[in-house]
Design a protein around this nucleic acid. Structure first.
Lengths: 163, 163
DNA sequence: TGTGAAAGCAGAAATCA
DNA sequence: TGATTTCTGCTTTCACA
């Protein structure tokens, strides 16, 4: 999935929609000095080519009672190259489980000593503790975890830098 | 900033807008079995109370040439409680800098041995190396860094679990 | 809180430059 | 690629229950 060529106008449009995804096409058109119809064509094309993946509403975690943000490093059990016939590898097993844990909003396989990095939103330390004991540490593939907790948000944006 | 009470309909609306922030009010109204006007009133209220922080378009990093995602742990120099008159503390200094680095999309002060966790989007390892050498490591407040790189995205959503 | 009606606009598509 | 026009439908706001 290679890089897609974008001209200056495309990048302007993306910058605008990254900061306000509900602007009307008309307003976007004005800001990029275009008339509505070519502007809409560009936006549709950016959507079709998957440059724009999705439009979403961002919520305030504190306002909905999610007062604790944790990053959890996870190390899985060492798996043999050949795993039991019919059974999934620990990695596949873990990935599938992560998808079903709503408090885990992000999970990446990472370089380094730990295998995965998880971003976890919970109400408080009690809920975090419950998630760890009852869910994460109970998973058969999980060998070791190291958790850190967010003390302060300095910056957090979904807007990617446009090169 | 305390939790805000939300009824079942509010939560339904939030779930819907978290997955598609461009739905028309009419469609949202239908899905929550409400007529357009009270539905709109609820949405406006959620916006006014800050439960909905923002509407945004999410881009595909790969498609815009950001092929490398890194998480960087940063430790700052130990600062004395009293710092030079007129000078800012290392922490304030670092926070202010982070705001100006576009490749850093997220930064949290964290518990644990490292002080900050940064999420960094760059084109490739060469650009990452450049960012480290020319920007991050040159910052006077930065004492130590440890980087990990994303090998695979298992999950990454902006949708928060609704309790 | 939820309903229904009316006015103002935005989006879609076809056409032309 | 960009501009223009027409038609359709949504958003918005009002008075009302």
């Amino acid at each position: 999935m290679p890089k897609i060529e974008l001209d200056k106008t495309d990048r302007k449009i993306l910058a605008i929609l990254q900061s306000d995804g509900r602007l009307t096409n008309q307003e976007v058109a004005e800001r990029v000095s275009l008339s509505p119809s070519p502007c809409l064509r560009r936006i549709k094309s950016l959507e079709d080519r998957g440059v724009i993946r999705q439009y979403v509403a961002l919520l305030d975690p504190d306002k909905i009672g999610l007062g604790l943000l944790a990053y959890v490093n996870v190390r899985l059990e060492k798996h043999n190259d050949v795993h039991p016939a019919g059974g999934r590898s620990p990695r596949a097993d873990f990935s599938a489980s992560v998808a079903n844990w709503p408090e885990v909003v992000a999970c990446y396989a990472m370089t380094g000593e730990m295998d995965y990095l998880l971003r976890v939103h919970v109400e408080d330390m009690e809920h975090f503790s419950h998630f760890m004991m009852e869910t994460l540490l109970r998973h058969p593939a999980v060998m070791d975890v190291k958790s850190s907790f967010a003390l302060q948000r300095i910056k957090d944006t979904t807007a990617l830098p446009l090169v």
